[in-house]
Amino acid sequence: MLVTEKGQVTIPKHIRDAAGVAPGSEVTFSLEGSKIVITPVGTGVKEDRRARLRAAAVKVHGSLGAEFRQMGADEIMHFIRGDDPADGAA
């Protein structure tokens, strides 16, 4: 693995997955002898937000009536925004 001029490296995906390091995660660096050790610090803010949004989406989806479940993405977005697609608003 090559270190860039800025000192950056890419952590391989299988290692990120195993360590629970997601985009937005915070990590610390330390030295153990001549080894550089990277340690995740809690859960990343972005991943926390995504998890909360997924949980909210599941709740909302479960509470929707059949008429809403049949709507397409564009129709749902118009409904959420409160605009009328017949008016040509986008």
Results as ranks from 00 to 15, higher is better:
M1Q: 02
M1H: 05
L2C: 03
V3W: 07
V3R: 07
T4C: 03
T4R: 04
E5Q: 11
K6R: 13
K6T: 05
K6V: 06
Q8C: 10
V9M: 15
V9L: 15
V9Y: 06
I11C: 01
I11R: 00
P12Y: 05
P12D: 09
K13V: 11
K13S: 11
K13W: 09
K13C: 01
H14V: 14
I15F: 04
A18D: 12
A19G: 07
A19R: 06
G20I: 07
V21H: 02
V21C: 00
G24A: 02
S25C: 12
E26V: 13
E26C: 10
V27Q: 03
V27C: 13
T28N: 11
T28A: 11
T28S: 15
S30F: 05
L31K: 08
L31D: 00
E32T: 01
E32Y: 02
G33D: 04
G33I: 01
K35R: 13
K35W: 09
I36S: 01
V37M: 10
V37H: 02
T39N: 12
T39W: 03
P40C: 08
P40K: 06
V41A: 14
V41P: 13
V41N: 15
G42A: 04
G42E: 06
G44E: 07
G44H: 02
G44W: 00
V45H: 15
V45L: 13
E47V: 10
A51C: 09
A51M: 15
R52E: 15
R54S: 05
A55V: 05
A55L: 02
A56I: 03
A56K: 11
A57W: 14
A57G: 14
V58Q: 09
K59L: 14
S63Y: 02
L64G: 05
L64D: 08
G65F: 08
A66W: 02
A66L: 12
A66Q: 10
A66T: 10
Q70R: 14
Q70T: 12
M71E: 08
M71D: 07
G72H: 06
A73N: 09
A73G: 06
D74R: 08
I76C: 03
H78G: 11
F79Q: 08
R81K: 13
R81D: 15
R81F: 11
G82F: 03
D83T: 07
D83A: 00
D84Y: 00
D87K: 05
D87V: 02
D87M: 11
A89D: 09
